[in-house]
Amino acid sequence: MAKKAAKKKVSKKITPKKVVKVVKKIDSKQQTIDSLIELIRVTSTEVPDDVFKTIVAAAKSEEKDTIADYAMGIIKKNIDLAKYKSQPLCQDTGTVIFYIYHPAGFHQTPFKELVKKSVTLATKKGYLRQNSVNSLTGENAGTNLGEGHPSIHFYEHKGSEVEVKLVLKGGGCENVSAQYSLPDTTIGAGRDLEGVRKVILDAVQKAQGKGCGPGALGVCVGGDRADSAYFAKKQLLRKLDDKNSLKDLDKLEKEIVETCNKLGIGPMGFGGKTTLLSCKITHANRVPASFFVSISYMCWAFRRQGIAMNKNFAIKKWLY
């Protein structure tokens, strides 16, 4: 509903120009900024449908009148309230990460500038907290811009539209994310899928409730340290109800969720049935000497959204 209302606002701005009958070119820069701010607003204040459904199902599975049931009730209420008030779900609006898919011939540099401008404006509007700190000086410019912030990744794709996906990755859950180097003798994890299973379970047990669980995992098996972490996080772009095209990984994903939910950690680590909402796994080649497994832990406040833009950079479609 909120999304539709916002779209209307955008089109209202354009209509009066037509009425005056002055044939003006649509200001595609302004339109891009409007679309991106709306993307940031929706991402920060709502969880996508697939996440919401999973949370509702998880809440139902908890026994009535337990602490877990109570916590899930508060989480659900918070989701409703944030959407209704159009306020951030959580005060930590996280690392702002853009994944931008564009056709050939697209100019990345000017678009990047518009993305930055939108982030600053969205911060002023309160959709993002002043959340970016210089790691050397501790200074917070208050704009969410700085070295490496926001994080922007571009990809050329075959489609003719520009698609922008956005993830807001909280700090608490980032702190419990992990990277393992196999073999790991402390938990007897070897260089095979069984070893991968062991380290993922270990990471979830170590995280307890500290990443604001129930959490969702993105995992990458292989790659060098940097790529492995990057691909793991990118798995968070998958819808929670999708299916892995690789049979072995699909099986492992399901098994991880089932097993983790037997650990009894529960929402916030209060104890209970829901420790993990989902697990998404990908793989990347490695050199013979290394075998990394990276685990990106996302909190229940799973903020991910995306838009497909039309020729004029207005929002054509929501991707989640």
């Binding site: 989480i75 918070n78 944030a82 008030k85 951030p88 005060q91 930590d92 604001c212 916030m268």
Partner: peptide
């Protein structure tokens, strides 16, 4: 006391 992490809106209310 443990509050529910991330429940910024419910708690602000």
């Amino acid at each position: 006391f443990h509050a529910v992490g991330g429940a910024a809106q419910v708690l602000a209310e």
